[in-house]
Every structure is written in structure tokens, then in C-alpha cells.
């Protein structure tokens, strides 16, 4: 299963349930996607959600973050998670 599997409903459900932040992680475009272009299709979908769906629901699009991180980039993942944890602290207050 690819990030391309992620549907609008999953993102909206998460925010409806009150999730602090939502992170989507996939493989680097263009070449790293095991499913050819599922990552890019995911990106298209998320851009739409950030631009339209979330603002319409009154949700700050910054609470949804997409990053391409390969399995060899542990330090990148760590960095992103640390940043998001800090962001979460700010969002909560």
C-alpha cells in the first residue's frame, strides 16, 4: 500500500476526531516510489486538501504535513518529527 492510497476521508476523519497534527510520509519523487507515481498522486490530493478542504472546515492547513523520507534517512525523519512535536506544543496552547 502506497501513500497514493490515502484518501480525503482519512485526513478529514483525523481532524474531525481532533488530531493535533497529521503527517504523511512517502518515498522521494520521482523515482523512489515502489508504485511508480503513487507518491505524486498523493501529493496532488494533499495539495487540494490543504488548499480547499481544510480551510473550508476552518482547520489550519499547516497542521497537515507531507514529507518525502527514504528508509536511509533516519536523521531526516527524526528532524521532521522533532519539528512537528514542537509545532504540536504551539498548536495545543
Amino acid at each position: 500500500m502506497c501513500t497514493g492510497r490515502i484518501s480525503e476521508e482519512m485526513i478529514t476523519r483525523a481532524f474531525d476526531k481532533g488530531a493535533g497534527l497529521v503527517f504523511v510520509g512517502g518515498c522521494h519523487p520521482p523515482g523512489d516510489c515502489h508504485y511508480i507515481n503513487g507518491n505524486i498522486q498523493c501529493q496532488e490530493m494533499l495539495e487540494k486538501i490543504k488548499k480547499k478542504v481544510l480551510p473550508e472546515k476552518g482547520i489550519d492547513p499547516e497542521r497537515l504535513r507531507l514529507e518525502w523520507i527514504s528508509s536511509a534517512e533516519g536523521s531526516v525523519f527524526q528532524k521532521v518529527m522533532k519539528e512537528m512535536a514542537e509545532q504540536l506544543e504551539r498548536v495545543k496552547t
Binding site: M10, K17, G26, C27, G38
Partner: peptide, 28 residues
């Protein structure tokens, strides 16, 4: 399935959802 993934999301966010980061990642 959608039901399975949504059930996971619901379960994850049952308690203290605002203090959590939900990650949706590639399962390859």
C-alpha cells in the same frame, strides 16, 4: 479497506487526540 484504516484512525485518536500526531505512511 477504508473501514479498517478509519477504524485505526478512530482508535488512535480516542484519547487525547489533540496531543497526538497521526502519521499516514507508505506501507511498502
Amino acid at each position: 479497506t477504508d473501514e479498517q484504516i478509519l477504524a485505526q484512525i478512530d482508535a488512535a485518536l480516542e484519547e487525547d487526540p489533540g496531543g497526538k500526531i497521526l502519521a499516514l505512511v507508505c506501507h511498502w
